[in-house]
Each structure stands twice: as structure tokens, then as C-alpha cells.
């Protein structure tokens, strides 16, 4: 290791109470995020990636609850903080950009008002100071100051999302968690937004957790990438290792399923369907769809283990050597 970690998630469990019992949406997840890196979380719908970051940011609402684990941020367990202490963390230390945040901009207020409100809400500054902070944030992200006087409908989609990022960045948090920040955007807008996130890391040393279902987005900007399947992280490693030397059969299948203009190849997809959190398969949760499954896969859940330097996988194929 030796690297400076900023966030350590240990055995985090986020469950939802349902009439059929607990839905174990995030089930015993552990990972470390290092300072000033872009840490990607990939996975298909329903794998628990959004719930995982909601758990980290303590936004899980009933019937959801945190069933166990620790979220260590700079040494303190966020899950043990009081609501007031957590308020001191949110925005100032860790900012979170939920999925679809840009459509939550108020259409009848200028960007200025909305940025000021957000800043005042999370710090003890006057309106004038807040406006200064908003200006500074925009210029730090290379956005023109004129957007302050504009209404959301006057902004392009990419510009809206970058205003959201600037607002999240305004109080200079050390960690920004962005959930699907480019999902609804056109390619050029996506590129602007991803470039903005990269700049936060490059110029300001901000750590970014980037949740996205699109593997190409991760290939473009991540330093390290975690892949989730059925409520668990099944592989973590440097992004080029995960793409060029994927260890888990699911990661392999996922990468082989992506059509790309860079290469014309037959894509097959992954046979079978993703399981339900109410009824995860026993053993390895991927075994019903896995072409390599053995007896042990049906009975024993594989642990996430480091099998190559810095490259972790939860798969019985790599046991014992």
C-alpha cells in the first residue's frame, strides 16, 4: 500500500426492508480510495452502486438501513457521527452529486441564486462572500462568469452539469462523489463534464468517486476501477489492468459486450439475467451465468483478494495460487 488513503469502506452493508425480507442491496463491501485519484465504480443497473455511495454519504432512507460496516474518512467512522457532525462533513469535506442532479436546478432562479443558497446552507458566510465563492468556483473550473446571471433553461446540458460540479466544488471538499454525471448528456457535453472532473483531480488534487454504468467513461478518466455485481465488489484494480487483464469472468463478459467504433467485433453479451437482491444465488452470485463455474462456486462465496499487485478479485478461479 504505502499510499495515502482518504476513504476506507469496510464490510459495508446497506439493506432494504421489504415484505419478503431484507433486500441485501449492498452486501459486505470493502474498498479503499486513495487521495487525489479518480476511483470508478462500474456495474449494471441494480448492482447496488448508487446505494453504495448513498450509504457512504449517509443518505439511506427507510425502508433502507445500514446493516453494518464502517466508512472511515480521514480516520473517523462516518457511520458513527451525529447528524450535526455529519453536516460538517457534507459539502465542506465530501460533496455528493446525485444522479440527475442537473434536472433539479430550479428553473425560475438564476444560477447565481442557486449557487449562493447552496453555499450559505453549508457554511457561515454572508451572501456577498457566497457570491465571491461561487465566482471563484466557476473560474477554477474554467466556466465563464456570465452563467451566474443565466437561468437553467438557457444553459446547455453539459453546462448545467458543470454548474452543479462547480457548486459541489465551491467549498473545496477533499472528496467529490458523482453518481452517473454524464448519463443523460450528449457525447460532446459528456466530454466537457468528464474533462472538468479530471481537472479537479489534476489541478486541485480533489479525490473523485465516479459512479457510472458506462465502461467507456471509466476507460476515459479513471485511475482505478471497481466492478460491482449483485451487491458486491467483484474486482478492483488500475483501470488499464481491469480492461486489458480482467480477472473476473463477469468483468470479461462486460468488456466483451461493449460495441465500439475503435474495433469492429462480434459482441455476445452475458447470457442469463442479473439476480434479485431478495434472492441472491448461494455461493458466488455470478455462478448461474458463469461459463467457468465449478462445485465450490455454488456453495462458497469467494472473498475479494489481491491476486496480482494492486489487483483484487473475488473469484474461485484464482484460489490457492
Amino acid at each position: 500500500m504505502g499510499r495515502n488513503s482518504i476513504l476506507e469502506v469496510k464490510n459495508l452493508k446497506v439493506y432494504y426492508k421489504t415484505v419478503f425480507g431484507d433486500a441485501r442491496v449492498v452486501d459486505d463491501v470493502s474498498f479503499t480510495v486513495y487521495r487525489s485519484e479518480i476511483f470508478g465504480i462500474a456495474g449494471e443497473s441494480g448492482c447496488g452502486k448508487s446505494t453504495l455511495v448513498e450509504g457512504i454519504y449517509r443518505l439511506v432512507k427507510p425502508p433502507g438501513y445500514i446493516a453494518g460496516g464502517e466508512v472511515l474518512f480521514e480516520g473517523a467512522d462516518l457511520l458513527k457521527l451525529s447528524e450535526n457532525e455529519m453536516r460538517e462533513i457534507r459539502w465542506k469535506k465530501i460533496a455528493y452529486i446525485p444522479q440527475g442532479a442537473m434536472s433539479s436546478l430550479n428553473p425560475v432562479l438564476r444560477v447565481e441564486e442557486q449557487m449562493i443558497d447552496a453555499i450559505i446552507d453549508h457554511s457561515d458566510v454572508s451572501r456577498e462572500e457566497a457570491l465571491e465563492i461561487a465566482r471563484r468556483a466557476l473560474s477554477e473550473l474554467g466556466l465563464p462568469e456570465m452563467v451566474l446571471r443565466m437561468y437553467p433553461h438557457e444553459l446547455s446540458g453539459g453546462m448545467k452539469q458543470r454548474v452543479i460540479i462547480a457548486t459541489a466544488y465551491a467549498l473545496h471538499p477533499e472528496l467529490i462523489i458523482a453518481d452517473e454525471p454524464v448519463t443523460a448528456l450528449d457525447v460532446v457535453s459528456s466530454r466537457e463534464v468528464l474533462q472538468t472532473l479530471s481537472e479537479l483531480r489534476d489541478r486541485h488534487g480533489t479525490t473523485v468517486i465516479l459512479v457510472a454504468h458506462d465502461m467507456a467513461v471509466h476507460a476515459e478518466v479513471d485511475d482505478r476501477l471497481a466492478v460491482m455485481y449483485a451487491g458486491k465488489i467483484i474486482e478492483v484494480g488500475k483501470v488499464d489492468k481491469v480492461f486489458y487483464d480482467p480477472l473476473h469472468p463477469y468483468t470479461k463478459g462486460l468488456i466483451d459486450s461493449i460495441p465500439s467504433i475503435a474495433k469492429k467485433k462480434m459482441i455476445k453479451g452475458i447470457p442469463g439475467i442479473a439476480p434479485s437482491p431478495l434472492n441472491w444465488p448461494p455461493g458466488c452470485r455470478f455462478h448461474p451465468r458463469c461459463p467457468y463455474s465449478k462445485d465450490v462456486c455454488r456453495s462458497e462465496a469467494p472473498e475479494l483478494k489481491e491476486v496480482k499487485p494492486g489487483h483484487l478479485v473475488a473469484c474461485h478461479l484464482y484460489a490457492g495460487d
Binding site: V187, S190, A216, A219, E220, V221, D240, Y244, A262
Partner: peptide, 10 residues
């Protein structure tokens, strides 16, 4: 501007 699923083609 299309993101490519290949970290070597950023």
C-alpha cells in the same frame, strides 16, 4: 468525443 472502452485510447 466518443469515449472509447480502452484506457490506452483516451
Amino acid at each position: 468525443s466518443i469515449p472509447l472502452p480502452d484506457p490506452k485510447m483516451r
